[in-house]
Write a protein that binds this DNA or RNA. Structure first.
Lengths: 339, 339
DNA sequence: CTGAAAGCGCTTACAG
DNA sequence: CTGAAAGCGCTTACAG
């Protein structure tokens, strides 16, 4: 049973060494005779001693707090990433403090500067789209605060970048629609100021073209990653003279909008219209018919980002950029085109 | 611009007082001459001095970290509550550390004890259903760690309890169904080991009886708050000889299951079957037809819980238990019974 | 390989 | 109303 009443002085006394030596054991310093180390460690274990992170932090001029700073509005994404991050942080003795940011707020950089300096954060994890903000990165660099950014493309060539393979998942969606025989294929994307919008569109478009198909300008519509945005865009697409037989959306929220537009206008999914989403949110499998969607391994991304951050903090030399792939989860929202 | 390079010694020097007096100003001690206070405050403001929370915590033998410990699997609930909590914590200078707990894990109490003692948490917020675990409460009391529990009933009579009026929302659902003329009304509840299951059922049942209706044992089915649980329960109910014309579910997840069971079995909502959910999750308004659902003010609950916790930490005498009400959000999933 | 002294940035007693 | 000393539980120089 953990008992935090013990201090380093108690452990020193019980081990018959100075507290400096206990400190060396805690910090895994190599320059401790192995029998001394063993003695100290046995006392630590016996009494369940745990060093006080605040005292260590004060002396180290840092803290054992990692910040997750985000503006992503998708709750499932946030919760999964938090859990993934924590799975890596906990064994290392770090805690996670969270800071949701309202993107519209004007003082984002000041807010972040305040928490980073005030709490002496040991490091920061930045999911998209905050990760794309170079002002924040500048601030973090100036403050010498380690960070890892998660984004759909490599924004800097370093060990501080976790890249998600957004393109490959989008390509799989294109391949499926192509192989089913669709030719009038539309894409509803997120807003242009998000990297992920570009990447998903690019991956989709490229894979279409690799099959001799194309994403026509008419069928390439920019929306906003919201349900209503998807609804509006689909209402518009499905009211045209030349209608798409398949729609790929940049996220699941918009795909739900497509579902409801289709229902409203009398299109049956997948018979009259094939739909593929992106995110594989919990909603995807609860829709009717269940929505095929590209799955982002968000928990794993969080875990990897945290592991990378710990490596940066520990200044491990071999740490490198890593990548997580996406894959299409097929359900029942696609079929051959009716015509 | 915040500049954390300043310490209390710098402020003392610049204000021409001792650091103890600066400390008194920081901690709002009344025994400082007002002109001295003004001088110190102007220096603090001018240089953007912010006291180091770790150093303060070390001296105070506590931290400025609030823990949110939870096992609730609903991401929207968690994210909304986190934001509500933070809205109250931030101005007070506290940070939020989160600890999702896997309910199945065996060492829940040990895990919580470890973080509470190790991080010297200033306080803990416990949403349901963890808030109902008296072992955790015992531990917190023994560790003298302030806490606020959020639950659907008063579990202790104190200022440490935020009660959500789960019954009133359920009653509103019953009133609506009764006023539409339904008589064969079913309820699919969450598992019995959750207080909320009881409260929602009780509120529903009472309000039914107040209208001369009843929740018959046959139509009172216990499920598990999951989509599949709701689906199964509804398949069963709708396959009976005597079928319900309305179903009230203990949460929205199960209501989605009801929707899909209805579709599968050829029941049209709301014409053949009225449905009301609970939670008003984002899914509710995206379903077809949009689902009427009881709304829990989760953000407000988080904010209030954090305010209450701060009052407990500050030992304010007038702090008292508070309550948040629920209300039915009507959409298009209910109608008069067909027969 | 080990330790005594000083310090991290605050606050708590204790004085006056 | 204000301050000098000691201490919170650790680590960093510096010695040896």
């Amino acid at each position: 049973m953990a008992n935090s009443l013990l201090t380093i002085n108690d452990v020193a006394r019980l081990s018959k060494v100075s507290k400096k030596t206990v400190s060396r054991v805690i910090n895994q310093s190599p320059e401790v005779k192995s029998e001394t180390r063993a003695r100290v460690e046995s006392v630590i274990k016996k009494y369940g001693y745990e060093p006080d992170p605040q005292a260590r932090g004060l002396a180290f001029r840092t803290s054992f707090l990692i910040g997750m700073i985000y503006n992503n509005p998708n709750p499932q994404y946030i919760v999964n990433m938090q859990q993934g991050i924590l799975s890596a942080l906990r064994p290392a003795g770090f805690e996670l403090v969270i800071r949701p940011i309202e993107s519209q707020s004007d003082h984002v950089v000041d807010q972040i500067e305040s928490i980073v300096k005030r709490q002496k954060l040991a490091g920061v994890i930045l999911p998209p789209s905050l990760s794309e903000d170079e002002q924040i990165i500048d601030l973090l660099n100036k403050a010498k605060c380690p960070y890892v950014r998660i984004a759909s493309i490599t924004l800097e060539s370093s060990n501080k970048m976790l890249v998600t393979g957004d393109r490959s998942g989008a390509a799989q969606a294109a391949q499926l629609l192509g192989s089913l025989g669709h030719t009038r294929i539309a894409h509803i994307s997120g807003p242009n100021h998000f990297r992920s919008s570009h990447e998903r569109r690019a991956g989709f478009k490229e894979a279409l073209e690799a099959q001799g198909l194309s994403l026509k300008a008419d069928f390439d519509v920019v929306s906003d990653y919201t349900y209503y945005g998807g609804l509006k865009a689909a209402q518009q697409l499905l009211s045209r003279k030349v209608k798409p037989t398949a729609i790929f959306t940049g996220n699941d929220e918009m795909a739900v909008g497509v579902y409801n537009a289709a229902r409203e206008l009398g299109f049956s999914i997948p018979h009259d219209l094939s739909v593929i989403g992106y995110d594989d949110s919990p909603m995807a499998e609860r829709l009717w018919p269940p929505l095929s969607s590209v799955r982002l391994p968000v928990y794993d991304m969080g875990q990897t980002a945290a592991e990378m951050l710990l490596a940066v903090i520990r200044k491990e030399k071999d740490a490198a950029s890593r990548m997580h792939d996406t894959r299409l989860v097929q359900r029942n929202s696609t079929a051959k085109p009716a015509t």
